[in-house]
Structures are given as structure tokens and as C-alpha cells.
Design a binder for these strands. Structure first.
Length: 492
RNA sequence: GGCCCCUUGGUGUAAUUGGUUAACACACCGCCCUUUCAAGGCGAAGAGUACGGGUUCAAGUCCCGUAGGGGUCACCA
């Protein structure tokens, strides 16, 4: 087993979207596979007919592709252990369930939902520690069973948990966990509709698909003994388990929709980078020995080990995600940002305007240290895409002086003679005006910034002026001179 | 309620498998840089490791108990 190449799987049920907890599980599986030269398999657990969601699988795969977790085998990428949809493997489960019945490790149960409900109620009334099936159908004779089937009474197949030694789980993150067989219920393996339950399908598939390591959320820990009993009944080798800590809300309950976004798509549409999401989610429950926390996918593959997965649940802290997002944004290729900025612009009110790559690249560079998200380029510096429609009154109050109008007029005159001024030329011109007027540069810089951008914050003024260009700068100053003095007067 | 898991600053995590004043990052605060903002740099504050016992020369690390939180007890996964 040690020498086998690892095969791991991410086995979500297609409920409509990819949960960030699912993303983390998928990521750890992926990292483990890649790190160890193994295979990462995607299997769709669609055995609940009632929970069918149109388009969910497509959406899931699309999201997985977006974050870059490419699977080696799965839907539309058949290996030789498919199909990868459990709904297409019904005959397989049936065959193995029959085998179990044959071996007395499982039995047919004809109990009606009503009887089951009554039983549960009685057990609760009796204050039994745990509600369990009472094995009522275990001792049905062959004839009774045949009669029932002939009579068209629907039935399920249940696991026959026999008395015996405790079931021990060896788990990479939790070491050793032991369950008494008394607390293990006779789990339904095949439902009346012929579909398997998770427990049955998951064990059969993991075995048939050659899964060596089962890496999944902690919520599965307490049903793992049932799975082990199944492996034993079949005489199959038990895979190595790794139960991952849960992702939590701020109040430490299991991460839920009610308390914030849980779908990867939500974060995507909010403008988070896939690099940031991956990096952040990787750090929820896992760490390196080093102090570094900025990683791309390849770094993670290189560093990841299951042994360093933490045991306790982790709160999903968006503030840190934001920081990581900004960090990744700054390290991205400018061309990649350009592409995203164009997409953002196309969905903004500036969608009908045309900008050259050259222009946008200048904006990107100038604002890079001032943004955390691509959309911030538009939200934080709209003045690169349209003339100021308003002017920040706080800034006017503080920075606009009696001589501002005059200084800006002088600046216009000074730069109007320049041909294709560069950033430095705007600076030299400003210094000259300041010198001639015998005032500090700041006396011009601040009014100039509000006049051209409407704002008191932004990139260096000379960058701002250069990016806007001489003609635009002059036009904007002229516009501002018509309205800012009035605002100033009104403010007193 | 039964069973199982977990418990280090506000948050995410470290701490050579018992060995100096418990480290790093995010957030927060201050300073520097910048005539803006941000980024960056520097620094501060913040936990004595849930609590209580024990073992030991020595415990966040081992043992026992308690408390709290979480998961799970479906013909859902």
C-alpha cells in the first residue's frame, strides 16, 4: 500500500454550488495528489433523487476549473474506473449489496416509514440513549421475504451490525478514534428506490476506484465506523483516512449561508482572485513550518502534507482574505489585471467608452498599491474614466486657498506650451509656477488634485496629470474653476 | 440526551515530540516615509496556552477530571 501511487477523490453531491468548505476539501485532496504524484478524481454523489438540481454538476465543474483544481479523472474525463456519476452505477451497488445479504452482513427490511417513526418515538419516550433500528426484519425467513417481495412490499437493505469488538479508525489528523459497536446503527445501504445511500456507494466506489486516501470533512467521522464495517465485510483493504477540521462562522458554528457567503461563486463575483481564495482556504487548518503565508498553487503543492493539518475548526475570517487578495493582486501580471479590468469596465457605466491598453496599463500601475480588488480601480479612481462630477468638499475646505484660482491659471499657461509632456515635465512646470509665485509646491499640488480628480486622495499628482494628458488636464482645471470657487464660497 | 472530535492573543496558526522572557501573520493603535492616500519600514498593545488537579528538576506539550464549543445520531450527502 505504501508503494501504491495515491489516488484521492473529491466527491461532492451536486446541490447547486461549490461550498468554500468543499473547496478546501477539494484543494487538500488535489494538493496531496499532486505532491505525491497521485491522481485526483472527481466523483459526483448524486444518489438522492429528491435533491436533483438542474445544472449543478456543470456549475460545480466550472467552479473547480475556475480555481484551477483540474481533476485527472471524472465527468467528461473518463479513466478506466468510471462512470463517475453514482447514479450511473446502480447495478454495481445492487450486486455488492446482494453479496452482503448473501453473507449475512446485510438484510432486507420491509418496515414501513410509519413503523420506523413509531419505533423512534417509543425509544425517545423510553429515554433510550440512542435511537436505533431494532433489527425487526433481521430474522425474516426466506419465505417471508419472498412473499413480501411478491406482494410488492418495498424494502431496503440494511447493514447488519453484529456484536463484537470496537471499531477503530486510524486517521492521519486525529490518530486513533474508537467506536463501540453498540452505537453503530443498522444503516440503510440501499433505499427503496434502488439507490444506495452515501455509506454504501462511497465504500464501494472508493474501493472500485482504487482510492488510497479518503480526505473529507470531519462531519463524516462518526459514520466512518459503518464504512469500516463494510470494508471488512467485503474483505477490502481500508483506505487511509484524514478527517479535516470544519470551517466555522464567527460564532464557531458550522459555516452556513445565513451568516455570510459560503459559495465559491459568491466570492468570485465579489471580485476575489482565485489565487487569493486558494491561498486563504489552504491556511484554514493547515500551516507550514515557515512563517510565510503567501503561496500560489505550486508553492502549496510543494509544501503540503496531511500531517500538518490542524485538528480544530477554523473561523472563516474575511479580513485576512481581503489582505491576501490585495497581496495576490499586486503580484499578478499587469496583462492579467488589464484583462480583468476590461471585464469590469464592460459591466460598469463606462462600458461604452474605449480605452487603449496603454492608458489602462498606466492606470493599473499608478493605482496598484491602492487597490485590493480589480473593481477598486473603478470605484476608487473613477476620475480616470470620467471627468469629476463632484468635488470633495472636505478637501476644498482644507486645501483651496484665495490664490488657488490664480495658481492654477498660471499652471495652465505654463503647461499649454509643452509638447507631449512627460510626468517630469508636469513636475518641472509646477515647481516653476511655485517658484515664481514664491509659494510651496503643496499650495498648487492639492488644489490641482481636486481640480482634476475631484478627490483628495489618489496616486501621485504627476502620475495623475501625465495619465490624463495635457489637454484633459487643462480642460478639467477650467471646468473646476467654474464650480470650485462657488463651493468654497458656500462653505465659507 | 448517547457517541465522537476539539480548546494557544479578537482571527488564522507556530512552538526542535517536556527545556530560556509562548513565535509569526491578519486586524487594531502609534511613528517614519510621501506636501495626498495607499504600499512599505519601524514599534506598541494584546494570550501565560479553557479551568482544576497530578507526574516531573522542568508541562502549551504527558495523565486524570471538569467546563465550554462543535459534529453526528435520515430511505441527505
Amino acid at each position: 500500500m505504501i508503494n501504491k501511487t495515491p489516488r484521492v477523490r473529491f466527491a461532492p453531491s451536486p446541490t447547486g454550488y461549490l461550498h468554500v468548505g468543499g473547496l478546501r476539501t477539494a484543494l487538500y485532496n488535489y494538493l496531496f495528489a499532486k505532491k505525491n504524484g497521485g491522481k485526483f478524481i472527481l466523483r459526483i454523489e448524486d444518489t438522492d433523487q429528491n435533491r436533483f438540481v438542474e445544472g449543478a454538476v456543470e456549475n460545480l465543474i466550472e467552479t473547480l476549473n475556475w480555481v484551477g483544481l483540474e481533476y485527472d479523472e471524472g465527468p467528461n474525463k473518463e479513466g478506466n474506473v468510471g462512470p463517475y456519476f453514482q447514479s450511473q452505477r446502480l447495478d454495481i451497488y445492487k450486486k455488492y449489496a446482494d453479496q452482503l445479504v448473501e453473507q449475512d452482513n446485510a438484510y432486507r427490511c420491509f418496515c414501513s416509514p410509519e413503523r420506523l417513526a413509531d419505533l423512534k418515538e417509543q425509544q425517545q419516550k423510553a429515554k433510550l440513549p440512542q435511537a436505533k433500528y431494532d433489527k425487526h426484519c433481521l430474522h425474516l425467513s426466506k419465505e417471508e421475504i419472498k412473499n413480501n417481495i411478491d406482494a410488492g412490499i418495498s424494502h431496503v437493505i440494511r447493514l447488519n451490525v453484529k456484536a463484537g469488538e470496537s471499531v477503530v479508525i486510524n486517521d492521519i489528523v486525529r490518530d486513533r478514534v474508537e467506536f463501540s459497536r453498540e452505537v453503530i446503527d443498522d444503516q440503510i445501504l440501499i433505499k427503496t428506490d434502488g439507490y444506495p445511500t452515501y455509506h454504501m456507494a462511497n465504500v464501494v466506489d472508493d474501493h472500485l476506484m482504487g482510492i488510497t486516501h479518503v480526505i473529507r470533512g470531519e462531519e463524516w467521522l462518526s459514520s466512518t465506523p459503518k464504512h469500516i464495517l463494510l470494508y471488512n465485510a467485503f474483505g477490502w483493504e481500508i483506505p487511509i483516512f484524514a478527517h479535516l477540521p470544519l470551517l466555522l462562522n464567527a460564532d464557531r458554528s458550522k459555516l452556513s449561508k445565513r451568516q455570510g457567503d459560503v459559495a465559491v461563486e459568491d466570492y468570485k463575483s465579489k471580485g476575489y482572485l482565485k489565487e487569493a481564495l486558494i491561498n486563504f482556504v489552504a491556511l484554514l487548518g493547515w500551516s507550514t513550518t515557515e512563517n510565510d503565508e503567501f503561496f500560489n498553487l505550486n508553492d502549496l503543492i510543494e509544501k503540503f502534507t496531511l500531517e500538518r493539518v490542524h485538528k480544530a475548526g477554523a473561523i472563516f475570517n474575511v479580513e485576512k482574505l481581503d489582505w491576501i487578495n490585495a497581496e495576490h493582486l499586486r503580484k499578478l501580471e499587469k496583462s492579467a489585471i488589464l484583462k480583468m479590468l476590461r471585464e469590469n469596465l464592460a459591466e460598469s457605466k463606462y462600458k461604452d467608452l474605449n480605452y487603449t491598453d496603454e492608458y489602462l496599463l498606466l492606470v493599473i500601475a499608478a493605482m496598484l498599491e491602492r487597490v485590493s480588488f480589480v473593481k477598486d480601480y473603478i470605484d476608487n479612481s473613477p476620475y480616470f474614466f470620467e471627468r469629476p462630477t463632484t468635488y470633495d468638499e472636505e478637501v476644498i475646505k482644507k486645501r483651496w486657498k484665495e490664490d488657488s484660482v490664480q495658481l492654477l491659471e498660471k499652471y495652465i499657461i505654463k503647461i499649454s506650451h509643452l509638447e507631449n509632456p512627460k510626468k517630469e515635465d508636469f513636475e518641472i512646470a509646477l515647481k516653476q509656477v511655485a517658484e515664481e509665485a514664491e509659494c510651496g509646491a503643496g499650495r498648487i499640488i492639492h488644489p490641482l488634485r481636486v481640480a482634476t480628480s475631484g478627490s483628495g486622495i489618489g496616486p501621485g499628482v504627476y502620475d495623475l496629470l501625465f495619465i490624463l494628458g495635457k489637454d484633459e488636464v487643462i480642460a478639467r482645471i477650467n471646468n473646476s474653476l467654474e464650480v470650485i470657487p462657488e463651493i468654497k464660497a458656500k462653505l465659507g
